[in-house]
Design a protein around this nucleic acid. Structure first.
Lengths: 404, 404
DNA sequence: TTGTACGCGTTATCAT
DNA sequence: ATGATAACGCGTACAA
């Protein structure tokens, strides 16, 4: 039934016995059908001015008739040497990225910059991290990291992504994904993470923003402040974080061991700034690490913190998502905000204005747009630049003077 | 220090006059360098069991030395016949998609289903619609739609996307983009829009949800209800919506002409359900069309509606984003919610719970996940199915009995 | 307009 | 077992 080889192709006799196999129609097929050169058919699609309108019309017509929907993008990309898309890698699952409004906003800005250039955005799936299932003993088995890494799904998708460049968003220090990206040798823009020598970078003034947030609360008189922190480091199967996680007694409470693993640049910067400001004012910080950047997680942590440490009068949250969870916790406890509890977030996502949440604003969408532009420049042969965007504290109704 | 070009490596005669141009190293280069066949090098990457470990090690090693980062994804995809990614088209700009939490959630679910299969997600840029600039006379010039369409950037990206299938999300009826997608002849899953015969479909019970929302307000005694509607139809340059938009006197107010252009399935379904429920109860609806699904737009519309129609005691909003804008408007007017104004949204995005917004819940992320699975099934040769997911009214604090 | 070499690998099929 | 040969995937660009 399957006729793999091309038909004898005796043009005179029209040897095609029947519409044999459902092989995909290609450009050549329609060229053959019209007895023109493949080049002409190609031109019909890509350089209409290179052939007579009537020939072009005939070509398009028979293409339609034969069910040919234009040149294969893959083949075309291969020949042209450009994939027409850029890859985005995020050091967490994609589903996670989309759940975070700030990440979404960033992607939106990025998309805007790219759609101007008619570039597609290829989201590269990250390894699923088994964050929800607790790491049982099985995971402990060594995996000869050297060779396995080369063929691992984690980095594998990076290596097999048909893209012209990458944007890496908030990868942890020493991330395998990042290494894989750098290994591809394509233009790269790094965003919201540790810089790498010679690689384009877009970031924000994390320290400044965090300091402003902390000082704001300190100025209001708060001296016992809880911190709802973003993750310290990745928890993926590849990453050696097992131990600290195993020994934690109280969920979320930060042990020195855990703090030693601080490998997310953003988290580290903000935490350091919080600490610095608190130290200046002689205030005490109670740090809880949220395993996930979700309101649920934050609510749980806030409830626990407020239960175990009643002296806390304010919460510094490293994201608005966490802050929203903190607000929920306050409501559940019947704590007035800001009367009995002040809450300050970070990111200033759109819904925070409606919630009256005090927060550190960062130009999230613009950051994405700039990252896109930076990559486009790189693609055009431009030089790698680095850019730090400002942050700004937005004081709203969720923070007020300490009232004891 | 950096040796970009492969070393001369003249084994025999070395016809290469010099390390001429910084040509990319290819699989063949490293095959040549080791005097093995390209096939062997390929195997080193893809079928490690097909060659001796030591040979493989040597290959990987010299690959590293020559700066070869593995088989070109494009070439590999071409040969294998699968792109390893699926395309998502959304009938609005991508930046817009990301600004909508519901869309983001959907994409997140989709991404999850795809990352399980190690498929990438290629976001296809839509044409920028000049929504913000008002459509001036220039746009009126005819563009010989027939031929232009074939090469238009709008549909162009669809035709040139290297993907194995598509997910089309909320395209308007008669969307050019949708036609282009269908024209590709690849597996397609349609989501939240009008169905197409024989094409897989995932949707929600829009009518049921909208009806429940409307009845809820009606049961509470409201009889003059404002509706903050999503867009009726696309406003892109290609779409013939100019006239109605031109003649609108009062921003957002819906004219019969405009309503005749109702081409978004979701909007149409919800509106019809609102209308049906209102008619049953003898209530009056005041419909405003939001050009954009943003809180700002909604706030503006709500302010205007409440100003011009003081009898309105409740607002039915077709999205939570719009509802959040309505809440802002209420706050600005000093209207108590739900005392003086009830607000009900649609989607039940995560932040709505924190806001205490009554809303129609839909399993947004799950919808995305199911769409992904459906597409994966299609890719595997499965049959096209259709699926309608349920919605559920979540009554929270933003809706209450009418109080006059 | 057209011939045709080339882009870069992959996957049978063969040979040792 | 191991490795090589060669056809093939689908267009595109440049010379003719």
């Amino acid at each position: 039934m399957v006729r793999a080889s091309p038909p004898p192709s005796d043009p005179a006799a029209s040897a095609q016995p029947a519409a044999s196999l459902p092989r995909r129609v290609t450009l050549k097929d329609i060229a053959r059908a019209l007895k023109v050169s493949p080049a002409t058919v190609s031109n019909a699609y890509n350089r209409p001015d290179q052939l007579s309108p009537q020939l072009r019309a005939r070509i398009l017509e028979t293409a339609l008739a034969l069910g040919y929907s234009g040149p294969d993008p893959l083949a075309s990309s291969l020949r042209r040497g450009r994939a027409g898309a850029i890859g985005v890698v995020y050091d967490a699952t994609l589903s996670y990225a989309f759940a975070d409004p700030a990440a979404s906003l960033f992607l939106g800005g990025l998309a805007r910059a790219l759609e101007e250039q008619n570039l597609g955005l290829l989201l590269i799936p990250s390894p699923q991290r088994p964050s929800l299932q607790r790491p049982d003993a099985q995971n402990a088995r060594p995996q000869e990291p050297s060779l396995r890494a080369a063929a691992q799904p984690a980095t594998g998708r990076v290596q097999s992504a048909s893209v012209d460049g990458f944007v890496v968003y908030s990868a942890s220090d020493g991330s395998e994904l990042l290494k894989a990206v750098l290994g591809r040798g394509l233009p790269v823009v790094l965003v919201d993470q540790s810089q790498v020598e010679g690689v384009a970078y877009i970031g924000i003034d994390d320290a400044g923003g965090a300091r402003a947030a902390a000082r704001h609360l300190l100025d209001l008189g708060h001296r016992q402040i809880g911190v709802l922190s973003l993750e310290f480091g990745p928890q993926g199967p590849d990453e050696p974080t097992g131990t600290a996680r195993g020994t934690e007694q109280s969920r979320g409470t930060v042990t020195p061991e855990r703090e030693a693993q601080l490998s997310y640049h953003t988290t580290a910067e903000r935490l350091r700034a919080y600490r610095g400001a608190a130290a200046e004012a002689g205030a005490t910080l109670f740090v809880m690490e949220a395993q996930d950047n979700t309101p649920q997680e934050a609510e749980t942590l806030a409830l626990e913190l407020l239960r175990t440490t009643p002296g806390v009068t304010a919460l510094l949250c490293m994201s608005d998502v966490l802050a929203q969870g903190a607000l929920s916790a306050a409501r559940k406890l019947g704590l007035e905000v800001p009367g009995s509890l002040s809450v300050v977030g970070f990111d200033d996502v759109p819904s925070s204005a409606a919630l009256g949440l005090s927060s550190v604003h960062q130009p999230t969408a613009q950051k994405g747009e700039l990252a896109g532009r930076a990559l486009v420049e790189l693609l055009a042969g431009g030089a790698a630049r680095e850019l730090i965007l400002p942050t700004q504290l937005m004081v709203r109704g969720s923070s007020g003077p300490v009232r004891k």
